Amino acid sequence: MTPSKIKLHREDGSLTLEYANGEHFTYSGEYLRVHSPSAEVRGHGKGQEVLQFGKKDVRVTAAKSAGNYALQITFSDGHDSGIYSWDYLRELADNYPEYWQRYLDALSAAGKFREADISTVKLMDPNASPQNK
């Protein structure tokens, strides 16, 4: 389904797709960025996906049509590869709760964070023997 209107919201870096039937979906820059269809994110095959983290403040800075079937989106972190087909954008909208939770679970399992300036540090026990440090 091809949207009838595309709106880039510069104030928060989100993107809204509106359809002739009145439906509309707004995507945050973070959601689109971490679900990019690019090889950088998806890898080159099953099991080669690369978990994106630290993307909470990433914004959509530009969107242009790629033929009649897709959008090429540019993000504030410089990422601009990957073509978002109309079908894929609709899939992202229709499956938002599941996809978002799966992403949050993957971050948690990897000890990663949405925020760019947070990392996990392992504290050492000062009483541990040198070989256990």
Rank of each mutant, 00 (worst) to 15 (best):
L15E: 01
R90D: 15
P3C: 08
Y103L: 00
M1H: 14
H9Q: 12
T16V: 10
S108R: 14
M1P: 15
L89I: 10
P126S: 08
D105G: 02
I118K: 09
G82F: 01
T2G: 10
S81Y: 06
V121R: 08
P37K: 04
R90H: 13
R33M: 03
D57W: 07
H35R: 04
R42I: 08
G43N: 02
A110Y: 02
A70G: 15
K112Y: 07
V34G: 02
M1W: 08
E115R: 11
A110F: 03
D80W: 05
S81I: 09
G67F: 02
A62N: 13
R33W: 06
L17T: 10
H79T: 02
A116T: 08
G29W: 02
V58K: 03
A109D: 15
F75P: 02
P97D: 04
W86M: 03
D94M: 11
K56D: 15
R114K: 15
R59H: 12
H44T: 10
Q52A: 10
L104N: 12
F53R: 00
G82L: 05
Q52K: 03
G78F: 00
N127T: 12
W100K: 11
G82N: 00
K64C: 06
P97L: 05
P97A: 08
H24Q: 13
S119D: 12
R102I: 01
N21Q: 09
K55A: 15
Q48W: 07
T26F: 07
K56T: 03
E30H: 11
D125K: 04
T120R: 13
R10G: 07
A128Y: 13
A63F: 09
Q131T: 14
D77F: 09
M1F: 14
H79W: 03
A63N: 06
Y88F: 05
K122N: 12
P97K: 00
E18Q: 11
L104C: 14
P3F: 06
D57G: 06
N127L: 13
K5T: 13
T61C: 06
Y69E: 10
D105V: 04
A66W: 09
A20L: 11
V60T: 10
W86F: 13
I83D: 15
E30T: 00
H9R: 07
N127A: 14
D12C: 05
V50C: 09
Q131H: 13
D94N: 14
F53I: 00
H9I: 03
A116H: 13
S4C: 12
D57Y: 10
Y19Q: 05
R90Y: 10
F53P: 00
L104M: 14
E23S: 13
I6C: 07
E98C: 02
I73F: 02
E23G: 04
